Simulated assay, not measured.
Amino acid sequence: MKNYTTMLAGVALCAAAGVAQAQSDFPQHPIEMTILFGGSAQTVGQVLAEEMSKLSSQPVVAVSRPGGGGAVGYSYAQATEANGYNIVWNSNSISTVYYQGNLPFDYKAFTPIARVGVEVPVVAVRSNSGWNTLEALAAGAKQRGTPLRVGVSGLGSFTHLVSAALFNQLGVPVVYVPYGEGRAPAELLAGRVDVAIQWPSQFQSHVRNGTLTLVCSTGIEKIEAEGAVPTCAEAGAKGMNITMWRGLVAPAGTPPEVVEKLEETAKQAVESAAFKKTVVNLGFTPAYLPAQEFGELIAKDDAVISDLMSKLGMNNR
Rank of each mutant, 00 (worst) to 15 (best):
M7S: 14
V11Y: 11
C14M: 15
V19H: 10
A20G: 11
Q21H: 13
Q21R: 13
Q21K: 13
A22C: 08
D25P: 03
H29W: 04
M33T: 12
G38N: 10
A41R: 09
Q42A: 13
Q46D: 10
V47Q: 11
A49V: 06
E51M: 09
L55P: 09
S56Y: 00
V61S: 06
V63D: 10
S64H: 14
S64V: 12
P66Y: 07
P66L: 00
G67H: 02
V72W: 00
V72N: 11
G73D: 08
S75N: 05
Y76W: 12
A77M: 11
A79M: 11
A79P: 01
A82K: 04
G84Y: 01
N86Y: 10
S91Y: 06
N92R: 11
I94W: 04
Y98T: 08
Y99W: 07
Q100I: 13
P104W: 00
F105N: 07
Y107S: 15
T111R: 13
P112K: 06
P112A: 01
I113S: 09
A114R: 06
R115W: 03
V116S: 03
V118D: 15
P121F: 01
V122C: 03
V123N: 01
R126M: 08
R126N: 11
R126S: 02
W131Q: 14
N132E: 14
N132P: 09
E135Q: 15
G140F: 03
G140Q: 03
Q143A: 15
R144S: 15
G145Y: 09
T146I: 13
L148N: 09
R149E: 09
G151A: 04
S153F: 10
L155A: 01
T159M: 05
L161M: 10
V162G: 06
V162T: 09
S163R: 02
A165I: 08
N168E: 15
G171W: 02
V172C: 08
V174T: 15
V174A: 12
Y179Q: 00
R183F: 13
L189P: 06
L189Y: 05
V193P: 05
V195H: 02
I197K: 03
I197F: 01
W199S: 15
P200A: 06
F203Q: 00
Q204Y: 10
H206E: 12
L212Q: 04
V215I: 13
V215E: 00
C216M: 00
S217C: 11
T218Q: 05
T218K: 07
G219D: 01
G219I: 02
A225S: 13
T231W: 05
C232W: 02
A233C: 03
A233G: 09
A237M: 09
K238Q: 14
G239A: 12
M240C: 04
M240Q: 07
N241D: 14
R246F: 12
V249W: 02
A250W: 01
T254I: 01
P255Y: 00
E257K: 14
L262A: 02
K267Y: 10
Q268K: 15
V270Q: 04
A274G: 07
K276L: 11
K276I: 15
V280M: 11
V280Y: 01
T285C: 02
A287I: 07
Y288D: 08
L289T: 02
P290R: 05
P290C: 04
F294T: 07
G295V: 04
E296G: 10
E296H: 12
D301H: 11
V304F: 14
V304N: 15
I305A: 01
S306M: 03
D307L: 14
L308D: 10
L308F: 07
L312R: 03
G313K: 02
R317W: 13
